[in-house]
């Protein structure tokens, strides 16, 4: 009896954890967005290019927010990764980049990848935790 109860409860918990895995994929998406943003924005020259980037960013944020709200499970989250992500964004893309990187897309791409590392680590941890 107690074994059946426990098994049933563990099955239910496992199903909820599986339904919460969207958050890991969401973080992967956010990491990809970080790389794209850090690569494309510094190279923006001209108003049209800047408008396209700004509009696509707004659309992306809207779609991601809507998708997130539609998920049936909100997992336990940890926000530790936001601090290194924000720090790297400010230092690499806001301070060092404009002074050292110039118009070299590959350097900005590398900068984006480095900035996305904390997000990617959290994404992997989330997916491992929610197995």
């Amino acid at each position: 009896m107690s074994e059946d109860l426990i098994r049933g409860a563990e099955d239910a918990a496992a199903r909820v954890r599986r339904a919460a895995r969207w958050y890991g994929w969401f973080l992967f998406g956010f990491a990809a967005f970080t790389v794209a943003w850090d690569t494309l924005v510094p190279l923006a020259t001209g108003t049209a290019y800047a408008i396209v980037i700004a509009l696509s960013t707004m659309v992306l944020i809207y779609v991601a927010g809507r998708w997130q709200r539609n998920q049936a499970v909100r997992p336990h989250t940890s926000n530790w990764w936001m601090w290194p992500w924000a720090g790297l964004t400010v230092v690499l893309c806001g301070f060092l980049g404009p002074r050292l990187f110039g118009d070299r897309p590959l350097v900005w791409l590398a900068c984006g990848v480095v900035t996305a590392v904390p997000v990617l680590i959290e994404a992997v941890l989330v997916l491992r935790r929610l197995r």
Binding site: E10, R15, V16, A72, V73, R74
Partner: peptide, 26 residues
Amino acid sequence: TPVRFSLMAALAAAEKVEFRLLRDTL
């Protein structure tokens, strides 16, 4: 009771869970 125990287990696995998912899970 089995339903309440499983319900608690399901809720303990996340921060918030939507009613319909719980209904289908249980």
